[in-house]
Design a protein around this nucleic acid. Structure first.
Lengths: 330, 330
DNA sequence: TTGAAAGCGCTAACAA
DNA sequence: TTGTTAGCGCTTTCAA
């Protein structure tokens, strides 16, 4: 038997299909008495509008797709929640998917969302190539990049945080506290944000006329084991760093685990309990990133046809001890 | 002009609509040469199947809805990611929504998902009343409750963790280390898990023949400020607790912030850096909860018609110092 | 192996 | 104020 349809309701109420549609959609111009009869029939049958059919007919699905790296990562879950709130405020529902930093999975998710005819997309790019988006954009789907830009494809709205500036400020802070050998621990250079933060690190050294020593650089896969091994290696150098700058929240946490002695430390990304632990950080704002990206997306959905924007959100240095003295747990 | 449709492809390839459908869906019985011609037309036009139309016709949308409390909370984001992974493995997409612990918002989200005709739902109930689900269930939508049961409505599959048992073990651990006055800090009793954990707390006291002192109970809204005030109040008692048991991750963190002296502490929920801080916890498994709930849901979608199950996942006590001695940061 | 026709449940356009 | 008709893009059924 399946669910009751508008037709069933119409039959039950003794009116035409279109009248039911009018009532369901609160269109004006329906006799109150008729409307009541329709509503009674709806109640009796347990009717609920099929939004799938509705959106097929109207050409807009009132849904967006969000592709992040990992829904379980606090940074991206904060971003996700912010996007969701904006979407709901606009009466949109949101599909979510995690790319696991895999460009193929990113593409598959995005295209699956497009096949469902989402009206728009917020994408944290895992890959640099977004040529695959072109037919979708041509077809009228809007897309915004968040946290990282695309390396190819059409120029699209992009919301980033000030990665280089933030890293520069963090490293400069360490230098200002007397450090001349600062280690840099971060994700692999293939990740946009890692490379940007590395630029910032270099800029801070340059500004202080300090030499750049490749031996102090530890970039690689985000696995904690790799980070811990790299930190141990750095600290075992003949001329070890007296301070470390870590490239994101995950890396900072893994680094903390690997420290066998007090070391000055500034980390990119704030994280829960960093304040209690006394970790100096360069904070970015995941929710702000999500809100900005979603706002931009909905302005496009509302008809905004201006050229693509690139927005950059500021970071904030929060001194808590580890960057001014050294981090020590006990 | 909009996107090309199957009809456009058919015209371009000089075949009938149905032939295009066959090729797009990899149905057998198409002449390879014809298929190639169709594929070429698809390529030329940038055609992509409209899954909205497809699912309307087929009656299944291959999508599920997930309603959690807050996508930004590490516990629920872990659960969310696990559900997503199971869904994707089955070729399903997932809508996500955060209820913010508001029963009305939960209902609105669930019904919005139902209007999109999701095939199934995983719900972390914010409210206790789920009568509103009945028409949807009658219409064939499957639903599974995770983390908390429903208080009303039809008996549905439910996946919980062993809240009472975990709390009992945690409090017994404190008692075994000599504590006779243990404070209990948790969410409001309206939250199922908080009440269950309070039961466990009482059971542990009873088992040790210790008196239950209402003055040691601090349950209330999840706001950090409330928790901090309550902890301060407990510690200021004439006969203060020598140990605290905290009811979830958020509460534990807020409690840590409020401590002005070393206190023995065991918290429900593991959380990032708890190991570094030396916090003894009763760990549950958010991803396990999500996986179990999603597996149950997909078994229903596959046709499983057995009576509703209630599954309970075990917890694990992890001693790290704060429960054996006392928590101290410096 | 291929195609024509009907219809999923709804809304848009146009009568009456 | 109400209803009729067509059709969104696809799959299903049945026929050729």
């Amino acid at each position: 038997m399946g669910r009751p349809t508008m037709n069933d309701v119409a039959a039950e109420a003794g009116v035409a299909l279109k009248t039911v549609s009018r009532v369901v959609n609160d269109e004006r111009g329906v006799n109150p008495a008729t409307a009541d009869r329709v509503r009674a029939a709806i109640e009796r049958l347990g009717y609920r509008r099929n939004d799938s059919a509705r959106t097929l007919r109207r050409g807009r699905t009132a849904s967006i797709g969000l592709v992040i790296e990992d829904a379980a990562d606090p940074f991206y879950s904060g971003l996700s929640r912010a996007v969701e709130d904006v979407a709901l405020r606009h009466g949109y529902l949101m599909f979510t998917g995690s790319s696991s930093e895999d460009p193929v999975r990113e593409r598959d998710l995005v295209l699956a969302f497009c096949a469902r005819r989402v009206d728009g997309l917020v994408i944290v790019p895992a890959g640099a190539d977004h040529e695959y988006l072109t037919p979708e954009l041509d077809a009228g789907i809007s897309a915004v990049f968040a946290d990282r830009p695309s390396g190819s494809g059409r120029d699209l709205d992009t919301v980033l945080c000030d990665n280089a500036g933030g890293a520069r400020a963090g490293v400069a802070h360490l230098i200002a506290h007397g450090h001349r050998r600062v280690g840099f621990v971060a994700d692999a250079p293939s990740i946009f944000t890692a490379t940007q933060r590395w630029y910032g690190y270099r800029q801070a050294l340059d500004a202080a006329a300090l030499p750049y020593d490749p031996a102090l650089i530890a970039m690689g896969p985000p696995e904690p084991a790799r980070v811990e091994a790299d930190v141990t290696r750095l600290l075992a150098l003949a001329d070890p760093p007296t301070a470390l700058f870590t490239g994101n929240g995950r890396t900072t946490v893994a680094t903390l685990r690997a420290l066998d002695r007090p070391v000055a430390l500034v980390g990119f990304d704030d994280f829960e309990l960093a304040d209690l632990l006394g970790i100096t950080v360069v904070a970015q704002n995941p929710a702000g990133l999500g809100t900005a990206a979603a706002d931009l997306l909905f302005s496009r959905l509302a008809g905004n046809r201006e050229p693509a924007q690139r927005r950059q959100l500021p970071t904030r240095l929060i001194p808590r001890g580890s960057g001014e003295g050294a981090f020590r747990l006990l």
